[in-house]
């Protein structure tokens, strides 16, 4: 039987469907019986969805991108 600590460590693997059949079964059984772990997993899933919806870092400005492209073309021409 998994402990709560084991479950907390395996939670991302379960969400990513990377547990073996036996591990997944044991995980789900524990979750069925343990309200604290259900709450933990609910919070983790919220966190993952939150992370997936975060905007990517600001793209480079036109000027920054143009500068890097110019340097690249200049270097490529030299070689």
């Amino acid at each position: 039987m998994l402990s709560c600590r084991d479950l907390a460590e395996k939670a991302s693997d379960h969400i990513e469907k990377k547990l073996s059949f036996r591990e997944a079964l044991s995980y789900r059984l524990h979750l069925f019986l343990c309200g604290y772990c259900r709450k933990f997993v609910r919070h983790l899933k919220t966190t993952i969805e939150f992370g997936q919806r975060l905007p990517e870092p600001e793209p480079l400005s036109d000027e920054e991108a143009e500068k890097i492209a110019a340097q690249t073309f200049e270097k490529s021409d030299q070689e």
Partner: peptide, 26 residues
Amino acid sequence: NMQFKKDGHWQNSPANWHTDSPLQLL
């Protein structure tokens, strides 16, 4: 790990969140 007892069970319940909605959190 500090949130667990030696036997691997939670010391306390994970905190209650006011919202579980990622959109509201964002």
